[in-house]
Design a protein around this nucleic acid. Structure first.
Lengths: 260, 260
DNA sequence: CCCTCACTTCGACGGCCGCCGAAACGTCCG
DNA sequence: CGGACGTTTCGGCGGCCGTCGAAGTGAGGG
C-alpha cells in the first residue's frame, strides 16, 4: 500500500518524476514471479525443446498433479511466456517464441549450477566425445551444436565478434542447402549466440541456427531420440557433416544424453 | 487414478521418471525469486545506475522501512546479485557486476510496459530532442547513448552485425582518447548491445561502453545531475562530441530526465 | 562519556500461493 | 448412448514470505 501510493505518484508522470521516482519494479517482479516457482521453472525448461506438450505430459514430466500444472499453465500463458493451442480434449502449450526461449536460457545460465570447473573444455568438442547432441528450443545445442558452430567459424562461414555474424560466403553456403536466410522474420537476428548449460560455450542460434536445425532434422542428418530434446546423428548426417564442414563425428553419437 | 498412481510414482522417485530427467527448475526459480518481489525489483532497478547506495537511501527511494530493505539486501547479496561494502555504520550495496546488470536489464526489457507505440523513433535521436541522457549501470544510455552509438556506427568506428563490434579504426579512436580496450577484464566482451527501456533501441555497452562513459565523466563531457542516473552534457562535452564524432548536441541538454 | 544515527534482529501479523483430492466438464471412441 | 480420458474448477490445507514496530547493536561525534 505504501508501494501503491508511491507508484501512483510515479506512474502518472511516466518515468520523469523528481529525485526518487524509483521506477516501478512490479512489472519486472511479475515476470520474474512466473519463473520463481520450481514447478513452473521446470515446465519452462522442459519446453525449451521447442515443441508443444500437453498439460498431462508436463504434469508427469515434472511430477505434479494435472490440477497443479493446469493452474501453472494459466499463469504462464497469461504472462506471455507460453502460447497454447487447444485441440479436442488436449491443451498443447509451447514457449511463446524465441524471445521467451532466450529469456529462459539467459536466466538458466545465470542460475546455473555453481560454476563447476569443467574437465577439459576443448576435448568436449573434439569429435569422439560429442555424445551430447540435442536441441535448444529451435536450434542445435550440446556438444553437437558447439562443434557445428566451431566448424562454421573455422571455415569462415560464420564470424565471431560480440555475437555471431553470418559471412557472405556463409549466406551462400546456407543457400546452397536450400536455406534462405535473407527473409527476416520479425525482429529476430540472422545469427545470435546462445550459451547453453552443459557446454558453457556459445553456439549458433537465431534464424541461421533454427534453419540449420530444421534442415538437419528434415534431411535426415539427425533424428529425435525418445520424446525429449536428445538427438542422434545418423549415418547420412555423419557423411554430410564431414563433407560440408569437414567434421569428424565419432560413432559415439548413439548414446545421447537426457534419455534412457 | 491411473494418473494418480503414475504421479506418486514420479513423485517418489524424484523427477527421474524414465524418458525425462526434466532438469531441475529450482536453481532458476531461486534466481527468479530474487526479482519476483516488487520491492527487491525496485531496488535493483535503482542500482542500475551502477553506483553504491546505502541501505537507508534505498529504503527511502523505494518507500519501505529500513528493516524491510535490510532483509531484502540480505537475500540479494546471498543470491549473488548484489555486492556489499560495510563502512562504519553504513552498508553500501551495488550490483555485483556487469552480468547482474545485464540480467536485470534483459528482464526489464521483456517485462517492459506493454510495447507502447513510439512516436517517432528516428526523431528521438535527432539532436535537439536528445534531452534524456543518463547512465545505465556503467555506460551511456538514453537518447545520448543511442546518439553516440549512432555516430560511432556512422563513422565506421563501430560495426553492427548481431551485436556490436569495435572496428580497428575504432580501437585506434578509443586509444587516441587514452582508452585501451585491449585489456580484457574477465569474460566481458569489448562491445555489446544494450537495449534500454526508454529508447527501445540498442546502444553501446560492454568494455567500450564503460570506458567511454568513464571518459565522458572524467574529462568533463558530462556531469551527473542530482543523485540519480541523469546526466547533462557540458559545453566542453558538446564541443568534444561535435569535433570527435560530428554530433550536433542541442542546447536542450540542460533539462534531463529523472531528476528535477 | 553519552547521545545520535544507521542498521539489524526479533516477533507477530497478514496475505498470498502452491499443492492436492474430489468432482464437474467436454471430447473422443466404441 | 455410455464409458474412458484429458482437463478444469473448487475447496481447503499448509507453508512461506513481506511487512512493520520495537528493541538491540555498534560506530561516530560532540
Amino acid at each position: 500500500m505504501d508501494l501503491t501510493s508511491r507508484t501512483e505518484h510515479a506512474g502518472h508522470t511516466g518515468r520523469s518524476c523528481r529525485p526518487g521516482p524509483a521506477r516501478d519494479g512490479r512489472p519486472l517482479a511479475a515476470l520474474a514471479g512466473l519463473l520463481a516457482d520450481g514447478t513452473r521453472a521446470s515446465v519452462c525448461l522442459v519446453l525449451l525443446d521447442g515443441r508443444a506438450w500437453t498439460a498431462g505430459e508436463l504434469a508427469r514430466a515434472v511430477g505434479v498433479t494435472a490440477a497443479t500444472v493446469s493452474s501453472h499453465l494459466d499463469k504462464l500463458v497469461a504472462g506471455g511466456l507460453l502460447a497454447e493451442v487447444r485441440q479436442g480434449r488436449h491443451r498443447y502449450v509451447r514457449l511463446a517464441g524465441p524471445d521467451a526461449a532466450q529469456l529462459i536460457e539467459d536466466l538458466s545460465v545465470h542460475a546455473g549450477p555453481p560454476p563447476r570447473p569443467r574437465a577439459s573444455l576443448r576435448s568436449a568438442s573434439a569429435g569422439a566425445a560429442m555424445a551430447r547432441a540435442r536441441t535448444c528450443y529451435d536450434h542445435l545445442a550440446g556438444a553437437l551444436g558447439v562443434a557445428v558452430t566451431d566448424a562454421l567459424l573455422e571455415r569462415g562461414l560464420l564470424q565471431q565478434s560480440t555475437g555471431f555474424a553470418v559471412t557472405d560466403t556463409g549466406v551462400a553456403w546456407f543457400a546452397d542447402l536450400g536455406m534462405d536466410l535473407s527473409e527476416r522474420s520479425g525482429r529476430r537476428p540472422m545469427a545470435r549466440s546462445c550459451l547453453d548449460w552443459t557446454e558453457r560455450r556459445p553456439h549458433l542460434a537465431g534464424r541461421a541456427g533454427a534453419a540449420l536445425c530444421t534442415h538437419a532434422l528434415g534431411s535426415g542428418w539427425c533424428e529425435r531420440v525418445g520424446s525429449r530434446r536428445a538427438l542422434r546423428v545418423t549415418a547420412t548426417g555423419r557423411e554430410a557433416l564431414a563433407e560440408l564442414l569437414g567434421m569428424d563425428v565419432g560413432a559415439t553419437l548413439s548414446h545421447t544424453a537426457g534419455t534412457a
